[in-house]
Design a protein around this nucleic acid. Sequence first.
DNA 1: ACTGATACGTTCT
DNA 2: AGAACGTATCAGT
Length: 161
Amino acid sequence: MEVVVEGRRGIRGVIAEIRGDKVRMVRFVRGRLPKSTEGAVSKVERKLGERLRKDLSRFLSGKVVDFSAYKVGAETGTVFQRKVWKVMRRIPYGSTRSYGWIAKKIGKPGAARAVGNACGSNPLPIIQPCHRVVASGGKLGGFSGGLPLKRKLLALEGIAL
DNA sequence: ACTGATACGTTCT
DNA sequence: AGAACGTATCAGT
């Protein structure tokens, strides 16, 4: 089931894909918003979809939302990437951590650059908040969806970089 | 504050 | 095996 949420302030919208009781993928919308597809889905799935739609909508309007309780599909990514994503999910709303900080956290100091790669292949932006991972020394770092988007996401959480 | 050089770990090709 | 990367640090300017 696909959940489509309209955004504001320069973020067009977000699409999330749900399968069973897990969120499988999230991506930002570029062009026009497609329609939400449901088809024949189970009750749990419909329910999860509704909850996620609300949470994403709240997040996109600048509300404080905690996504850490959502179950996510764990079938993708290498061992290293999954470690990075796991730590990433625990970065609280409104705060940031550096690539190097995550590297240390997973027992691989010196792998800061590799952490950057892993962030870039995050299949679940917002839910796994890769935008909260920044460079050391108060610098913004990179973003595969484009730096302006990273700035907007951080701005939603009250962080100006 | 910015530039270049160098070391670094993981993932592509 | 080599190159590419969403980095970090340090020495210059």
